[in-house]
Design a binder for these strands. Structure first.
Lengths: 213, 213
DNA sequence: CACCTATCTGAACGGTGTCAACATGATCTT
DNA sequence: AAGATCATGTTGACACCGTTCAGATAGGTG
């Protein structure tokens, strides 16, 4: 490729395969589910030989971790949007919860992959330490909702509890559909908010009622 | 082996393979993890040819479902024990939560298998309809803790919320270890109870504070 | 006894993750 | 400009996997 002439030239051997592979994996994941996500299928989808990925990822696991990482970024984005769009600061935590579960519902296979405990646990904690991670956003939203920011221990407990509760709801929603209850409550979002209301830490009232010593 | 003489005779072709296979699968799961759980490995462990399982399970999936079913039964047992041993009725929900998370910690691979959303969703909901299922036990414990049993809709929401929260905590605990926080709080169980205290629905106070209309 | 059916084995198929050997071509050095 | 170098790609192979099918084996039934 001498000149950057027309549209789709292959500038290098491939271009940048790493990204192409991750994209291909994500495409397969959405279209055909986790069962169809083989390394060879990813290579096929990217138009490359089965051994090619090994020059960019030492393992199938490492590729999946890259895919999962992209998922965490997308989820953080969703959470940030929900936080920005919240009518009042104290609504933010609930809105984050809704956005979180919606993300899990819209990308069930990707969400499962993100939490796949078979792989190394490094992916999520590492991501949690970043500036605008979902975790720290939840923490800030809790403070905005009235959580005491000086009691670090309690704040961390509240953040973990919130995250666990919403994660549990998200996984549960993918596992069981609760359709009759949803209908009785008037739809998906109503059900969601009703459940969130039952998690104490998600309302200032709940927060207050749990302040002990 | 013509006569039913001594201890381990093989009365039929094998005895009863279905159970032996499920046991073998459970053994592999605990010893080597989910990655090593191949149908062939299970057959090997049971001392039988790779094709033998197909006379008892139509699929690898069907075997895994049997294993998962056993897991649900064991979990129900744990919950029942926690409920019986609770000092006061209103402590039962919290104690159930502790027992639940402990079960998930002690059998991480089995727990993952039980919630594997790749398989058919029939396993868990079906089990939830049984008499002494974990789900209905949680519901009863909530009533004992002061939840209004006449408001069926609210009761179901509370049960789901409780289950989601504890499931989330269990999965999260297997995903991330929270060691520094655990140390600061004085151990595993202290951490666990601290988190549970932050789920509003798990304390009568939390229950009361969420009663709206 | 002969027949039937359930259970198990052996061999085979296509698919998978992974690796070593080889090919290719962009970049660096001279 | 020419040749060396190194990252990137391909081919072919290996062991293992889930699954199937034809045949062996043995219990139950007439």
């Amino acid at each position: 490729m001498r000149e950057t002439g027309s549209a789709h030239v292959k500038p290098y051997h491939h271009g940048d395969l790493s990204r192409a592979l991750v994209d291909a994996a994500r495409r397969i994941l959405e279209a055909e589910g986790a069962a169809a996500l083989s390394l060879r299928a990813v290579a096929r989808e990217a138009g490359v030989s089965p051994a090619a990925p090994y020059h960019h990822f030492k393992d199938k696991t490492e590729l999946l971790e890259a895919v999962a990482h992209g998922g965490w970024e997308a989820l953080s984005e969703m959470i940030a949007q929900a936080r920005i769009n919240a009518a009042r600061p104290q609504d933010a935590i609930t809105d984050i919860g809704v956005a979180y579960v919606n993300f899990a519902r819209d990308n069930p296979a990707l969400y499962d992959l993100m939490y796949d405990t078979t792989r190394d646990r490094t992916a999520m904690p590492q991501h949690a330490q970043e500036e605008d991670s979902g975790y720290s956003q939840v923490q800030n939203a809790l403070i905005a909702a009235g959580c005491d920011p000086t009691d670090e221990q309690d704040l961390e407990l509240a953040t973990i509890a919130s995250w666990c509760a919403v994660h549990g709801l998200a996984e549960m929603s993918n596992f069981k559909d609760f359709q009759p209850l949803k209908d009785a409550l008037g739809g998906d979002e109503a059900f969601l908010r009703a459940i969130l209301r039952h998690f104490g830490t998600f309302s200032p009232a709940g927060l207050a009622s749990h302040r002990k010593h």
